[in-house]
């Protein structure tokens, strides 16, 4: 019985590890996924930041619509598209060399998670502010989102 439990546990663990390994995305697919999400984030955040910085007339409906879309996009959990091994696309890929993800994403996982959470919280504040309808709070929250973007880019994205 004892040996059976030991063997079973070991086998179960091995099976888990194998299935996780098989379930992992191809690096190229992961890179495409996270970059697509980033593009949609920028498309929605752009007008919000322009309004917050006074470069575009404030439009509450547009601001709110984009903020709510950002909330949905964030729910896609972009962090899961950074699987181990996706620091570069596979050899011969059409998008070889197309990622600016730093290796620190995989060596400083706690710090990366924290940077990710910081943006999640900033976006939470943005939607809360949008729902409150207070223009000042909305603009301030937009600034917080911009800072969170930059904070993560500074640490985990290679410079141009």
């Amino acid at each position: 019985m004892n040996r059976f439990v030991k063997f079973g546990t070991a086998f179960g663990l091995a099976a888990c590890v194998t299935s996780i390994a098989y379930a992992q995305m191809k690096p190229e697919a992961a890179i495409r996924a996270r970059q697509s999400i980033m593009r949609v984030i920028v498309l929605n955040f752009g007008p919000i930041a322009q309004m917050a910085q006074g470069k575009m007339a404030f439009n509450k409906e547009l601001f709110t619509a984009n903020a709510l879309r950002l909330e949905s996009v964030w729910a896609m959990n972009v962090a899961r598209f950074f699987p181990a091994g996706s620091e570069k696309p596979v050899e011969g890929s059409k998008i070889a060399g197309f990622t600016r993800a730093k290796p620190e994403i995989w060596s400083e996982t706690d710090k990366f998670k924290q940077a990710n959470d910081t943006l999640g919280q900033a976006l939470g504040k943005l939607t809360a502010a949008a729902k409150s309808g207070d223009e000042g709070a909305m603009k301030a929250a937009a600034g917080g989102v911009g800072k969170a973007c930059k904070g993560c880019h500074d640490d985990f994205r290679t410079k141009k």
Partner: peptide, 8 residues
């Protein structure tokens, strides 16, 4: 260094 709205 700070970024955000202060970029204006």
């Amino acid at each position: 260094y700070i970024g955000g709205n202060v970029m204006r």
